[in-house]
Design a protein around this nucleic acid. Structure first.
Lengths: 354, 354
DNA sequence: ATGAAAGCGCTAACAC
DNA sequence: GTGTTAGCGCTTTCAT
């Protein structure tokens, strides 16, 4: 009664483990054992199975396997914006580590929308991912087991460090901002504007706080925080206004990738030059920053450490789902590229291009 | 005999459609009908089902559904390098379109390795994706139904236009390179070096060809193609040698994103300035290119059109698997940002930073 | 309109 | 060691 697919003879259906078993003259279970290696199989049968697999060009159906086995060996990753090099770099590192451990990654982007993020998480969960790494768009992830995450082992990265109920990994934002601000102060700046992105993001608040602390510690009362939003253009526009004022800042500390690029654009737009007219310190180092002249300095978040920590935590949680929540901070590095202010006095920007 | 999960009372197992059915007092099939909407269900039962779903916090298992239904509503995307803004931009657009049509995307990166690419494709296929969009690392994709692709509807994008047996979408590379080269010639350049990436990539060969044609047409015999490899650093290094020669080129045409950034770095490294010492025309427009001064001009590949074409083709192929292969070219735009050569004669680069 | 039952492809028990 | 069987969660006939 067993229906046997005609091997490759025009039949549309893909061969199954049953077809392989039939051709090799063994039981389906044996084929499975050969493939998964969970049970030893005698050599002659092994060979027969492999031959059958080859002639049928059999591909295991991962869906069926996962359904039965209860594990997908897949982790889901959700980031706000893949075109942001910070996130694409992070994703690349995460992918690498997951792959090395035999996991595949399912990558989704939330486009900085909380609602979309929820949808993506739900989709990932309904696909039975074994774990989740999320850089949240909203800091408002619900850790309750009834939330969209549904009890799937999850690590939060970059955003949302403050949320209890999750393992989290993020940069030591406050310290990084403090160091960065201090660097600008050491360069001789007094009017330093901090270009933040959006209100209510945990990591951003930490950076703002570090900035304020450094300003206060240096006795500089004029802390000035500008919220430029989450796009390059909105950041440019917000800062441009700032730069057109008579008492414009002499230094900008841009708090994230979009802010850094937005700031660079704003500075160009009002035809100032860094570092003579204005210094620019950015967040999230990127390749192109080294081709700007004079260089823009940055606070670099160590992507390898960040992703390493994520992956370790997630693996731990996947093994022991009830271990206590862990929170890890990684230290950022200051990439100071700017010559000391005042050394290059001569304007370096080209004459107006009529 | 039917085992019923205790609703949320500490039981670990996720509720299934059976649990919902039991609680709502209906058959599993009815729950399915409510959920999928494929068959009408009377209002009182509908409500009971929804109530049960809510109280149990039931999530459909997409794996099981896909296994049974034979479709995953998922397409796989494979690109060589997610940190390349051309690809991350393309992926973003593709994701958008897939999502709008009710498809989810499974994204994988091949890291410019043919072997990895094969693995990723196999993984995607074994996950039963309904379709595949691939930007190949090697131009060597095997279209036979027995290949790793295993008959899954596939569209090739950017790379590998020349491969028969696949639907393909790519830029009109030869025309774009011709236009770009012509632009540099119009600017007065005679010694124009073309910075290619790797040999044997179809799209690259087309660009080289466009360059050569433009040079020949202008009666410029000194076509000079340098292969810089697939990383920013290798491109920088290759071009830097070129720029240190006495008869160095007056213009560089960089053939891809990595080449453009590599070229910018090389130009900086040997302390030349564009466009006075050397002009730079790049491929693949990127945000940061507008903050360099003077601007670097680029050939922009229209990501929206590219992805739109991909998605349309893939949808068509998924519906009619035996329709004839289609090949689509999209036209690139020249973003000329450079002032004419010679207008700004005064050197604009800053004095050496001791 | 609803329920019962078969089965998607695979793996884990349990026999032999 | 190897075969047999049950069933993962869902959808879909086929009866009713």
């Amino acid at each position: 009664m067993a229906r046997v697919n005609m091997a490759n003879s025009g039949a549309k259906k893909a061969p199954t483990i049953k077809d392989v078993a039939a051709l090799a003259g063994v039981a389906p279970g044996t084929v499975s054992n050969v493939l998964t290696g969970r049970k030893l199989v005698a050599e002659p049968l092994r060979k027969a199975v492999f031959d059958a697999i080859a002639t049928l060009d059999y591909r295991p159906n991962h869906l069926a396997s996962s359904l039965r086995f209860g594990k997908t060996k897949t982790i889901g990753i959700v980031v706000p914006d893949l075109t942001n090099p910070f996130f694409s770099g992070l994703v690349k590192e995460l992918e690498l580590r997951a792959l090395k451990s035999g996991f595949q990654t399912l990558l989704m982007s939330s486009h900085e929308e909380v609602a979309e993020e929820k949808e993506r998480i739900k989709a990932l969960v309904s696909r039975q991912v074994d774990g989740l790494i999320i850089s949240s768009s909203g800091d408002s992830i619900d850790p309750s087991p009834n939330s969209s995450i549904n009890g799937v082992p999850t690590v939060l990265v970059d955003r949302a460090f403050t949320v209890e109920g999750f393992d989290t990994v993020s940069a030591d934002n406050e310290q990084a901002a403090l160091t960065g601000t201090q660097h600008l102060i050491d360069l001789g700046h007094k009017r330093i504007t901090f270009l933040a992105t959006a209100l209510g993001l945990g990591n951003m608040e930490e950076r703002v706080s570090g900035y304020r602390k450094a300003m206060a510690a240096a006795g500089l009362p004029d802390a000035n925080v500008v919220y430029g939003g989450l796009t390059i253009e909105s950041c440019r526009s917000a800062l441009e206004q700032e730069l057109r004022r008579a008492d414009r800042p002499t230094a900008i500390f841009a708090s994230a990738y979009v802010a850094t690029l937005g700031a660079a654009k704003a500075i160009r737009a009002v035809d100032l030059a860094f570092p003579n007219d204005v210094s620019l310190l950015g967040f999230d180092d990127s390749d192109w920053m080294t081709v700007l002249r004079p260089y823009v300095s940055t606070i670099e978040q160590p992507l390898e450490e960040l992703s390493e920590a994520c992956w370790e935590m997630l693996q731990r949680r996947m093994k022991k789902r009830d271990s206590p929540m862990a929170h890890k901070r990684v230290t950022c590095a200051l990439r100071a590229r700017e010559p000391p202010r005042g050394v290059v006095r001569k304007p370096v920007h080209p004459p107006p291009e009529n």
